[in-house]
């Protein structure tokens, strides 16, 4: 039997890449109500904290760093929120998008729609990973920003006393809050990578979101066991405290440096595993 052959369609000279995927991932996020749930929580939770402090003038959260200073300077509010946020809120906000961004497309069948266009699979993955990370950064920024704004309005934008006992000006305090937030971002990147891995491997959005949150809580439980003290420095969730090193005078960079390499130790393998799975997987959903 013979079949007619023709000249093959010409290969495209230029293909859309990561930037195109990233841009459209952001547009898709903006079009979904779920996206705003996480961002809403990033605003509402610090607001509730400030309102609770105003409502009860007798108590301070003394057990956490800067907890004894919340009524002295509004700048202490975002720092206290960073500690509280690491327990479940920031991992949850991160997982809401990172855990969903691949799995939901697999479940709904849209993954096959975008993987049969002209973009390489790894470009699609990279665009999604960047979008998920951007969302986590935005969520964390809104969380800290809201806490700072409301804290300042409620208790004043006043000089703040660092963990080493030195009192610094408002300007220096704001710079340190910014630096602390950047340090806090290191384990957030790790959580994003874990969520992406679960999203890719489980192909189930709910399982990936809940799984990420459970993994975060499980690590915190491990970190709380004195018998496992040797493990604590290597846990991703422990790195959520690294920012406190910067809120000293002079700054203690050791926990920040540790947070960088420990977070990288979680992030890189998780991302590589997710990428490998995504590039090689059979797409059968939907």
């Amino acid at each position: 039997m013979s079949a007619h052959a023709v000249s093959a369609p010409k290969l495209r000279v230029r293909r859309p890449g990561v930037a195109t995927v990233y841009r459209w991932e952001l547009r898709k996020l903006l079009a979904q109500k779920r996206t705003f749930l996480g961002l809403g929580a990033a605003v509402v939770v610090p607001a509730i904290f400030v309102v609770a402090l105003l409502a009860d003038s007798s108590g301070n959260p003394e057990e956490v760093p800067f907890g004894n200073l919340v009524r002295e300077s509004g700048l202490a509010i975002p720092l206290v929120c960073l500690t509280f946020g690491s327990i479940w809120l920031i991992p949850l906000i991160t997982a809401l998008v990172a855990g969903d961004i691949v799995a939901t497309e697999d479940q709904n069948g849209t993954l096959k729609t975008i993987l049969t266009r002209s973009v390489e699979r790894w470009h699609v993955f990279a665009g999604k990973a960047l979008a998920a990370l951007s969302y986590a950064v935005l969520g964390l920024s809104m969380f800290v920003g809201t806490a700072l704004l409301l804290g300042g309005l409620a208790f004043g934008f006043d000089p703040v006393t660092l963990l080493s006992g030195t009192t610094v000006s408002v300007g220096r305090g704001l710079a340190l809050i910014g630096a602390g937030t950047l340090a806090y971002l290191l384990p957030v990147i790790g959580i994003t990578a874990i969520a992406l891995l679960l999203s890719t491997v489980t192909r189930n959005s709910a399982a990936a979101v809940v799984g990420t949150l459970m993994a975060s809580i499980f690590m915190q439980v491990l970190g709380a066991l004195s018998a496992l003290d040797w493990l604590d420095p290597y846990l991703l969730t422990t790195q959520f405290n690294a920012w406190q090193g910067l809120l000293r005078d002079p700054a203690d960079w050791d926990p920040v440096i540790r947070a960088a390499w420990v977070s990288a130790g979680w992030t890189v393998p998780a991302l590589l595993a997710a990428l490998t799975s995504f590039v090689r997987r059979d797409v059968t959903g939907g």
Binding site: P9, G109, L115, T116, S118, R121, G286
Partner: peptide, 16 residues
């Protein structure tokens, strides 16, 4: 990869 799909289009099962 997707280079093989240049000039090719379609869908499997229902388009999503």
């Amino acid at each position: 990869g997707v280079r093989a799909l240049d000039g090719v289009a379609g869908f499997v099962e229902a388009p999503r």
